[in-house]
Deep mutational scan, measured.
Amino acid sequence: IDVRFTVNGLDVTVRVRTEEIAERVKELAKNGVDWREIQRIAEELNK
């Protein structure tokens, strides 16, 4: 599942395995978490 969001004007796409992880990623993006941090968290959750 590809999750797309915009952080500080940057369009970011993170690929995740499940809808649940996708929701977590969207939540982080909404809360203004840095995209590199979101990427790292997504990689952890995908394991």
Rank of each mutant, 00 (worst) to 15 (best):
R17E: 12
R15C: 13
V3K: 01
T18S: 11
V25L: 15
R24W: 07
T18P: 01
E27V: 09
R4E: 09
R15T: 15
L28E: 02
R40H: 08
V3C: 05
K26L: 14
V16G: 01
D2R: 07
V12L: 11
A42D: 01
E44M: 07
R17P: 05
W35P: 11
K30W: 07
Q39R: 10
R40S: 09
G9A: 04
I41R: 04
G32R: 05
D2Q: 09
I1Q: 06
V3S: 01
V14I: 15
F5H: 02
A22S: 05
N46H: 03
D34W: 06
R40V: 09
E43S: 08
L10S: 09
E23P: 00
K26S: 07
N46W: 06
T18G: 04
I41P: 00
K47L: 14
V16R: 00
N8H: 09
G32L: 08
R15E: 06
E44N: 06
T18M: 02
G9Y: 03
K26D: 03
R15K: 11
D11I: 15
F5S: 01
D2A: 11
R36P: 14
T18L: 03
L28K: 01
K30P: 01
E19L: 12
V12A: 04
W35E: 05
K30V: 10
E20M: 09
D34G: 11
D11S: 13
V7H: 08
E27N: 09
V14T: 03
R17Q: 13
I41M: 08
R24I: 15
D34Y: 08
A42Q: 01
G9V: 02
L45C: 03
V14F: 10
A42S: 06
R4S: 13
D2M: 12
I38A: 01
N31K: 13
I38L: 07
T6Y: 08
N46L: 02
I21F: 05
K30R: 13
R36G: 12
V7Y: 11
N8W: 04
V14A: 02
A42R: 01
G32Y: 05
V14E: 00
A29M: 12
T18I: 02
I21G: 03
R15I: 10
D2P: 09
N8G: 12
I21S: 03
R36T: 14
V33D: 03
R15M: 11
V12S: 03
R40M: 11
D2V: 14
N8R: 05
Q39Y: 08
Q39L: 15
W35I: 14
E27Q: 13
A42P: 00
Q39M: 14
V3D: 01
T13Q: 07
R36W: 13
R24V: 15
E43N: 10
R36S: 13
T13A: 08
E27G: 07
E44H: 07
I41L: 08
I21R: 00
T18C: 03
K26Q: 09
E20I: 08
T6F: 09
I41S: 02
E44A: 07
R40T: 08
E20D: 11
I41E: 05
I41G: 01
G32S: 07
V12I: 13
R24K: 15
R17T: 09
L10F: 15
V25A: 01
E27C: 03
E44D: 09
R36C: 09
E43L: 08
K26P: 00
N8T: 04
E27K: 08
V14L: 14
W35F: 14
N31E: 13
I1L: 11
V25E: 00
G32F: 06
R15L: 09
R36V: 15
L45I: 03
E44V: 08
N31M: 15
T18K: 02
V7C: 04
V3T: 02
D11W: 14
W35V: 14
V3F: 05
E43V: 08
D34F: 07
L28M: 13
W35K: 03
R4V: 15
L45G: 03
A29G: 05
F5M: 10
K30G: 09
E27I: 09
L28S: 02
V16H: 00
G32P: 02
L28G: 01
D11Y: 12
L45H: 03
E43Q: 09
R4F: 13
K26T: 08
K47G: 12
V3P: 00
V7F: 11
V12M: 11
E43F: 08
T18F: 03
R24H: 13
V14M: 10
E20C: 09
I41Y: 07
N46I: 02
E37W: 05
R24F: 11
W35T: 06
I21L: 04
R15D: 03
V16P: 00
E20P: 04
R15P: 06
E27D: 10
E43W: 08
R4H: 15
G9K: 03
V12C: 09
R15H: 14
V33L: 12
R15S: 12
N8S: 08
N8P: 03
N31V: 08
T18D: 09
N8M: 09
I41H: 04
D11P: 11
G32K: 07
N8V: 04
